[in-house]
Structure formats: structure tokens, C-alpha cells
């Protein structure tokens, strides 16, 4: 299955300045936590904007198909083929 990930609010700097990634998974259904685990392997370890002490940094908004992941079970939310997940930082600038 394929998941599209995009980054807003300057988070692309953690992923080689890429604003969008397309990730392939062998499973037919994954959870958000699986996606986050995959992103850990791709994130520049020197940049602390995305992961901080192994956790997704608080203050990052997560949208699954353009809806707040707090509507679902956040890390436990199920993802399907072709879903789009957006990570938007609220941390920078005023």
C-alpha cells in the first residue's frame, strides 16, 4: 500500500527539504504509529523539530486526509492505501 506524507510549517527541513514523500508499505493496512516509526528512519537525526526524545514533538498538527487526527485515535488511527497524512508545525515564528 502507498501513503502520501506532506510537511508544513517548515518541517520539510527534517526530510531533506522535501515537502512531500510517497511511502510504500508491504502490509494492506497500517496504523499511524507504523507510519511514525517509518518516518523516524527518514528524519535527519540532527533536526529536533519533528522528533524530540523519540516522540513526535508536541505542537505538531497531524491531519489524516485533511482532518485532525484527534478525531481518530491519533497513533492508533488506521491508514489505508492512498491516504494522505499532513504534519504541520505550529512552533515557528509569529
Amino acid at each position: 500500500m502507498k501513503i502520501i506524507v506532506d510537511f508544513g510549517g517548515g518541517l520539510d527541513i527534517c526530510f531533506e527539504n522535501k515537502k512531500e514523500l510517497t511511502l510504500e508499505f508491504e502490509e494492506q493496512q497500517i496504523k499511524m504509529t507504523d507510519l511514525i516509526t517509518r518516518l523516524k528512519t527518514l528524519c535527519n537525526p540532527k533536526k529536533l523539530d519533528f522528533f524530540y526524545t523519540q516522540q513526535l514533538r508536541p505542537g505538531i498538527l497531524v491531519l489524516i486526509n485533511d482532518a485532525d487526527w484527534e478525531l481518530e485515535d491519533k497513533e492508533e488511527a488506521q491508514l489505508q492505501h492512498n491516504d494522505r497524512v499532513s504534519f504541520i508545525s505550529t512552533l515557528h515564528g509569529g
Binding site: 508544513g8 510549517g9 517548515g10 523539530d49 512552533l91 515557528h92 515564528g93
Partner: peptide, 10 residues
């Protein structure tokens, strides 16, 4: 609202 803003840490 698709407003364009600048977001880079100082």
C-alpha cells in the same frame, strides 16, 4: 484558508 505564511525558525 490556504493563507501563505513564512515558517522558518529564527
Amino acid at each position: 484558508k490556504k493563507l501563505i505564511y513564512f515558517s522558518t525558525e529564527c
